[in-house]
Design a protein around this nucleic acid. Sequence first.
RNA 1: GCCCCCGUAGUCCAAUGGCAGAGACAGAGGACUUAAAAUCCUUCCAGUGUCGGUUCGAGUCCGACCGGGGGCACCA
Length: 826
Amino acid sequence: MSRGRIPLMHEAYDIHGVQEKWLPVWDELAPFRSGLPDDPRPKKYVLDMFPYPSGDLHMGHAEAYAMGDVIARYWVEKGFNVMHPIGWDSFGLPAENAAIKRGGDPRDWTYENIAVQKASMRRYACSFDWDRVLHTSDPEYYKWNQWIFLEMYKKGLAYKKLSPVNWCPGCQTVLANEQVVAGLCERCDSAVTKKKLSQWYFKITDYADRLLDDMDQLEGKWPEKVLQMQRNWIGRSSGAEVVFDIEGRDTPISIYTTRPDTLYGATFMVVAVDSELAAELAAGGPVESEFKTYLEEVKASSDIDRLATDRKKSGIFLQRYAINPVNGEKLPIWASDYVLADYGTGAIMAVPAHDQRDLDFARAMKLDVRVVVETGEEDPNVSGIATSGDGVMVNSGSLNGLDKAEAIAKVISELAEKKLGKLAKNYRLRDWLISRQRFWGTPIPIIHCPSCGEVPVPEDQLPVELPSAKGLDLKPKGTSPLGSATDWVNVKCPKCGADAQRDSDTMDTFVDSSWYFLRYIDPHDATQAFDPKKIEEWMPVDQYVGGVTHAILHLLYSRFFTKVLHDLGYVKFTEPFTRLLNQGMVLMDGSAMSKSRGNLVKLSEELDRHGVDAVRLSMIFAGPPEDDIDWADVSPQASVKFLNRAWRISCDVTSEAGVDFASGDLGLRKITHKAIHDIGYAVETFRFNVAVARIMELVNHTRKAIDSGCGPADPAVREAAQAIAIALSLMGPFTAEEMWANLGHKPGVALAGWPEVDPALLEEDSVVAILQVNGKIVDRIDISPNITDAELEKLGMENEKMAAAIAGAAIKKSIVRAPKLVNIVI
RNA sequence: GCCCCCGUAGUCCAAUGGCAGAGACAGAGGACUUAAAAUCCUUCCAGUGUCGGUUCGAGUCCGACCGGGGGCACCA
């Protein structure tokens, strides 16, 4: 029998024993502490989106944190001082709902869950810096929410206005535009209705252009999909504002259009039925009562009805007329719900020939359709399909014969001369409604005084702490539960000392998460939200990791806050997250896991069954990080098998720690160094699944070397085993630590350092070049990697199979790419 | 309706415009074993959704279509 064929080590290591063994050691070692003064390592900030504490961690968390850990651990191995913090986004409705259901205080539920999640993160071996933990529901945190609010208030960026808002009858609270999904509340799926309320807003629309234009900085560093979604959401369009005189009205009306070229095709005007303009135009007129009836009908319909695109057009003729500024024509003015009150000016010119919605309306109301762009398509009067493409202007006075772009330019300049129009931009983005009529959130630091009006709470009185929930009825009833905390609400006006009342609304919890990444840098600083000097050292975040579900809301708001803080002089950068990685979701049998669907996989059970390392490895190996993982396609048992295979390598090594690798088997050394190089590259390019495959490859080669190659005593085997342990520590930290100990090292492998790659060992002795004729492979030859084009071509031409394939034909061209191929074209 | 992404073995997935297969799951066979498990070894399986184009050469680039997923949506 040859040595090494004897079945030596076929037992597996004790998965759970290993976990219990190393966790206390790591607690002591704290390899991921990043707050030490005089740490000479270059800094890197790796950030995982912080969790909401709703029960224990689930499979989705496990995936996200596995991905974040690969990145954070990699950069630690590469010698960086990596800040990888964690905290809890711990204000929010579920805590409040739980408190309503079970009685008690949302605080209890929240902090109990945080403790559970924290324990699970430790068990999962997350490489977090536990000295930086923050909870957004702690007064020491939300104090600074209030401070930022007041900073924005001073600049006019936080303001209160009375306007129709999205109202969720289920949650009994207002919602931001962003929280309404297809007309439904994103949280409880109730049909959202409109309600006219006085609410607090952040003026994010002031930043629309910058939020859009600064995305250039993120190009190639954020997923294209997310950039696309944000662009869609902001929805910038450019066009013109055109002024129409109104018969019997002193002031004219402006409309917004993206197609000023079609101005001669306008045959009527439409104002939003729920706009003040419509009410004014109808007031005192012959159709006032009909108008009011129609308005009531529209108000009663839900957003879902309004969103239905195949809905019949409705409207009412107001018996008023607008004058088309280009030709003086009288256009009847209609009120309809297909025009939105809060976009543009709430009024449009209708060009039915070239806009489908206008055409639908014109046909329903029997209004004129006038073609002014000849596109070569069928007449919309006949087809019922508006022609929206480019063409030649007709019936358009001075614009006749021009194309779209020319016509737009000309008509705008003509209108501008007469001060009847100008270039204009519009956005889909609306201001961010931040007040909520709920308890478990940051109190808005404003006091309402009968004589002074809105008075900001003086900074030295922050935080405005939430009162105890005891004795308060938290049940949703349309006004904030804080309103009934009389001791809390009733205060003296800071300005005049008169009896006054606190604002009883709380802030949207997205406010909390819009700047938490700044607070991590010094989470317990009692004197300021953050220290601008320390911010400079760490920010912006080098790598952000989280789900694509936050592609719009959280990421847009965080970008907005960063720009505001920049303008206020607190930070020097304008984008908070340099790079972004969106991990996919964990599915089961093709769909998202849910209790009701019955396909829920419990993380804790998977960890019990397969161990932490196998679950982590399975998550990472399943596919590219951005892809969804179907847990049904994943085999954690296969990961267990591989981890054992890797572990056994460390058991077989017989050389001493510290042995000089230089004398080791050259073949294996080359494989090892190539692997180290490839694994690092794969990690840096987010191809973690490929990194795992490369480690597997290295394990396979090392196994072969031990069993039937250079043998377990060869220094190259130790070099390979150590490389495996270090690389594997990114995905399977327990197994890696166990290997590291087997190899005679002190803990921990997390700080072992990424092995240096020797460039000399990356050079191959020989490579295979392919010989092609007309792009078809004829033969393969072994050659030196340093061969020149000329030498390779010569070898190609001398090759017998090539000669046979060319068969004496005239050579038109030869392409040589040393050392890879020769292609002869005949 | 507008915009974006993705289609590679039975499955999950690799492949700077240059050998379609790195890695794994499942399957088959073998070694070891009294047997099984574990372990080790060997092995089968697609020409890249379809049709065109560019190119010496296309899974990769371009166009159209088919299929799947996602975002926005009476935003003028």
